[in-house]
Design a protein around this nucleic acid. Structure first.
Lengths: 238, 238
DNA sequence: ACCTGAACACCGTTCAAGT
DNA sequence: ACCTGAACACCGTTCAAGT
């Protein structure tokens, strides 16, 4: 009689495969539908977020995601249609973290400022999502849509003409997305190296910024552009 | 005696493998260094550009690139260290197409306008390059650096304070990169669908833009944001 | 120096089989 | 409905061998 078939005997020392448990048990699941589902979109989203935090977007593969959830890769496809779907789930989760609380509570320009900084900071750690968000229908991302609603309402109450609200948001968002990439640039990205002599204006400008800038360059550019946008959009408000 | 081994017999109708030549001959090259090199970076760049034009960035694989050049994939690695290197070559080629001719010939704001529209238009067809450019040291991209030099010089002559030139360029460029993604968005990206009732402000704004906007939405947003940036940056000029 | 060809260690995704 | 396991059609990259 094989050991696995012994009825109700508790093994005194080792589990039934007699292999020493060096770490967390593999906890093999046999084929077939489990009694209660082990996966859903929320569980997949949080595992993806954890994986990204640990291994970055290069480490976010369907195989690694499945491993971290202790399932076969193919099991994921019962809950998402593609890897892109996973990215959409993560994106919408992050959208909920963006701070829109100042809309309706502060003057519109201050509300835009807080929203924009928060939006940039959240997505600068998730730039691989930007190409996805930029073309993502809002219907597929409810939290993202909720963010747009808050901003739209804020701009309307501030007196922005109705037909310019969406364009203003898109313009701000485009600036924010581009700036999120800029945050990840290496510090010496503008070092002209051996080409310095053939690019005197650029080289002098880089040197000047480095000499007296105490802010991070990405923050200085974001602040400058955001204030320019806010004042430019504000001037066109009525 | 097998047909393939017949010595020096010219087959009267078909080539020696007896297969009909339906298209261009495969033109097999045998192993070993060829008499004159078949590849260099310029040839690789132009093949990549042609491939992207025909099959998009999904079609740009090292295998497909090699096939279009009639070499083995591994041959590419004698001229580039990685696929990313190919993308950098393409990026720098495109940077030379961006129009900076108005700097020094037109008022600074008009020069920035032409540069920005041109820059956006070129890269809106090449958005997969944006994550690469955004973090690319300028030393690795001479044409890109030449573009920055032209813009820097234009802004200096316009009276921009030295230490704000780089930040201004970065702010404009961030807006341009984000806007390039926006060009590729589907027309109905903002259709709230079944969520329309829970997002009244946003829905009304989308409707209002659709009703009276004759411009493409991406162009309206780009124009609005660019004019806001130009006037905002101009106000801070001195 | 600069090719070919074989191999490596992966990918995302599909699908039959199982419960 | 929701798992497993095997398989498919790819990837980018490395490296010995050849000239």
């Amino acid at each position: 009689m094989p050991a696995a078939a012994r009825p109700n005997t508790k093994p005194p020392v080792a589990p039934r495969d007699a292999a020493p448990r060096v770490a967390a048990a593999p906890a093999k699941r046999r084929a077939g539908r489990p009694a209660t589902a082990v996966l859903d979109q929320a569980v997949i989203t949080s595992a993806a977020l954890q994986l990204i935090g640990k291994s970055g977007y290069d480490g976010l593969t369907m195989a690694a995601l499945a491993r971290s959830l202790n399932v076969a890769p193919s099991a994921l496809y019962n809950h998402v249609a593609s890897k892109r779907d996973v990215l959409v789930l993560v994106e919408d989760h992050l959208a909920a973290l963006v701070d829109v609380s100042a809309f309706g509570a502060e003057p519109w320009d201050e509300a835009v400022r807080r929203w924009a900084w928060s939006y940039r900071d959240v997505f600068s750690k998730h730039t691989p999502l930007i190409p996805v968000i930029a073309v993502l229908p809002v219907t597929d991302a409810p939290q993202t849509l909720a963010m747009y609603e808050a901003v739209s309402q804020g701009l309307r109450e501030a007196g922005f003409p109705e037909e310019r609200i969406i364009s203003s948001i898109v313009a701000l968002e485009s600036f924010i997305f581009g700036s999120a990439f800029d945050v990840t640039a290496p510090a010496d990205i503008f070092d002209p190296g051996s080409m310095a002599e053939s690019t005197p204006s650029f080289t002098a400008a880089v040197r000047s910024l480095a000499e007296q800038g105490h802010e991070k360059p990405a923050d200085a550019a974001f602040s400058l552009g955001l204030e320019a946008l806010i004042s430019g959009l504000g001037a066109l408000r009525r």
